[in-house]
């Protein structure tokens, strides 16, 4: 049952990801991306990473996907329903994608994967919080300073010069 659900979520993710790249209507691609991100959140739950799944929902679906849809609507003529994208250089892109696929496949098959010895963790949030505040405090602070810089930079750039 659990395995069946896993295959269903994987198929759901891959099919909607294919729609993202193969569809020629830009907005449909953005909506298909929503379902792809949803599927990825489901896969995270299978990896016992429930907090990451929640972050996926909040950041990617609530933030990034909304921004993408906003971007499409604001940069095109929003009054016309038909917006289209075309895939140019399909051959070159296909060869490159195949190469990346084989490369990643080789890495996956050759890596010695760490097997989880203990039972599944009851709550990952507490451990993530503790580690972020102790062992990984410096990267965490560096990332937050970077984000703050980006925020201020965006505010300055988008401000009208007066």
């Amino acid at each position: 049952m659990s395995e069946l659900l896993f295959w269903f979520i994987s198929a759901f993710t891959i099919i909607s990801a294919l729609i993202v790249v193969l569809n020629n209507q830009l907005l449909y691609s953005a909506i298909a991306l929503l379902f792809t991100l949803f599927g990825v959140a489901g896969l995270y739950i299978y990896l016992w990473a429930d907090f990451i799944a929640g972050v996926q929902l909040l950041v990617y679906i609530g933030g990034i996907n909304v921004l993408i849809i906003f971007g499409i609507m604001l940069t095109n003529r929003i009054s016309s329903v038909r917006l289209s994208q075309t895939n140019i250089q399909q051959g070159v892109g296909g060869v490159f994608a195949l190469w990346v696929f084989i490369f990643i496949g080789l890495i996956i098959s050759k890596t010695e994967w760490y097997q989880m010895t203990s039972a599944e963790p009851s709550s990952t949030v507490r451990e993530i919080g503790t580690l972020l505040m102790t062992k990984y405090l410096l990267p965490f602070e560096a990332a937050s300073v970077l984000l703050l810089g980006a925020l201020i930079g965006a505010a300055i750039l988008s401000r009208e010069a007066n």
Partner: peptide, 10 residues
């Protein structure tokens, strides 16, 4: 719940 609320936006 906060994350699911963002579906409404879309």
């Amino acid at each position: 719940i906060v994350g699911m609320g963002s579906l409404a936006v879309i």
